[in-house]
Design a protein around this nucleic acid. Structure first.
Lengths: 213, 213
DNA sequence: CTGATCAGTTAGTGACGATTAACTGAAAAC
DNA sequence: GTTTTCAGTTAATCGTCACTAACTGATCAG
C-alpha cells in the first residue's frame, strides 16, 4: 500500500516503532524503573542490548516516546482548535468542544502513553524534560486561547488551572475504563466518551465563584 | 501538651512518622524506585539500615504510607458525607458538597501522598495492593451513594466513573498549584480551592447526554 | 548497680541491570 | 564477487542498591 520507497532497511523503522509501542505498554504497567532493557527487548523479539542499535540508551527510549506524544497532542490540538467553520471569529465554544473531543479520544485510544507521561516525566533527561514541558505549555496555551474567547475577564492563571484540571479529569480514564473486552463493572468506552465530554465542558464553564451557597 | 504518657521510647513513634513524611516527599519527587534507603535515612538524620528498626523493608514503608492515606480518605470522607444536618434524608447535595470540599482540602494539603498513591501503587506488595484497593473502593462508594440520591436513575458504573474522573480533576492540583510561596504564574491555593470545588460540582452534575448541539 | 533491650552504626554480601566489547551473518554497495 | 555496513548476539564490566551481620552505647527494668 503506502510503501515509502525506502530500501529494505525500513525494517529498522518498523522495529523502532515496535520498541516504542512495547515501551509504552511496559512503562505504563511497571514504571520506567521497573522495566529492564532485557524485558523491553524480549517484548519485541530481540533481546537485550540490541536496543542500542535504535536508541542511545534506556532514557532515550523514554524521551522519544514522550516527546512524540507531546508533539502529537500539540499538533492535534492546534488542528482541532482551528476547525471552527466560521473562521477565527467564533465564540470559542466550537473550538472548545473540538478540543475536548480530541483530548478524550486521545486519552481513550492511547491510555498507556498518557499514563507514562505524567508518571515517569522525572525520569527524562533534563533536555527532554524541557522539550516536553515546552510542548505541553504550548498545548495548554491552545486551550487557554479557546477559553479566553468564552471568558475574557478570567485571568490566564485561572484558565490554565482549568485546563490542567480538565486534563486530570480526562486522563483519569485509564484507571477507570475497561481496557479490553469483557470488562466487569466498568463503563464501556463508547458511552464513556460522551460522558467525559459532558463533564469536561461542564467543568470548563463552571462559574468562578460558587453561586448559590 | 498532649503527652500520651508513653515512655520515652515514643521517640520511636516520632522517628517513624518522620520517616513516613520524608518518604512521601521523596517518593513524590523521585518515585519509589528512585529513592534509596540511604536517601530516605539521610532525610531524617539517620543513615541507611536504621530504617529496619521501624519497617520490615522498603516496600513496607510504602505500604504504611499508602494504607494510611487510604484510611484517612475513607474515614474523612465518611464523616464528611454524614455531616448532612437534616440527617440521612437530605437530597444528597449537601453530602456531595461536603465530600468535594473535603477532597479538595485533602489534595491541597497533602499533594505528595496523592501523587505517590496513583504513581507507585504497583510497587506495593500484593497484600498492600489489596488493602489499598479495598479502601479506595469503599471511598468511591461513599461518593456513589451521595450521587445516587441526586441521580437515582444513573447506573452505578456511570457514577463510579464520575467519581473517579472528579478525583482526577482534583488530584491534578499538585501539578498545577504553586507548592510554596513565591510562585510564578500559578493560582495561589486559597482561590484555587473554590474554583476546584465549583468545577468538581459542575462535572458531577453535568448531564449524561450532551444536551444542545 | 546490673543486665537486657533496642535504636543506631559501619562493613559486608548478592542481585540485578545498564552499558560496553568482541563477534557473526546477511543484505547493500560497487 | 568482494567488501562494507549494520542489526543482532553473547560475554564481560561496573555501579548501585536492598538487605544482613556484628557491634556499640544508651536507656530502662529489677
Amino acid at each position: 500500500m503506502n510503501e515509502t520507497a525506502s530500501p529494505r532497511s525500513e525494517a529498522k523503522a518498523v522495529r523502532r516503532q515496535a520498541l516504542l509501542d512495547a515501551a509504552a505498554a511496559l512503562f505504563a504497567a511497571q514504571g520506567f524503573a521497573g522495566v529492564s532493557l532485557d524485558d523491553l527487548g524480549a517484548a519485541v523479539g530481540v533481546s537485550g542490548p540490541a536496543i542500542y542499535r535504535h536508541f542511545s540508551g534506556k532514557q532515550a527510549v523514554l524521551g522519544a516516546l514522550l516527546v512524540g506524544v507531546s508533539e502529537e497532542l500539540l499538533t492535534g490540538g492546534s488542528r482541532a482548535a482551528g476547525l471552527a467553520p466560521g473562521g477565527e471569529a467564533d465564540d470559542g465554544g466550537t473550538s472548545l468542544r473540538a478540543l475536548v473531543a480530541f483530548h478524550v479520544d486521545f486519552a481513550l485510544s492511547k491510555p498507556d502513553v498518557i499514563r507514562v507521561q505524567d508518571r515517569d516525566f522525572t525520569s527524562l533527561s533534563p533536555e527532554d524534560q524541557n522539550a516536553v514541558r515546552t510542548l505541553q505549555l504550548a498545548y495548554v496555551d491552545v486551550w487557554v486561547e479557546a477559553l479566553r474567547r468564552l471568558q475574557p475577564e478570567a485571568s490566564r492563571a485561572e484558565l490554565r488551572l482549568r485546563a490542567q484540571a480538565v486534563f486530570g479529569l480526562i486522563n483519569s480514564t485509564p484507571h477507570s475504563v475497561g481496557r479490553t473486552r469483557r470488562d466487569g463493572g466498568r463503563v464501556p468506552a463508547a458511552p464513556a466518551r460522551k460522558l467525559l465530554e459532558s463533564m469536561a465542558l461542564a467543568a470548563l464553564t463552571a462559574p468562578s465563584a460558587t453561586p448559590s451557597s
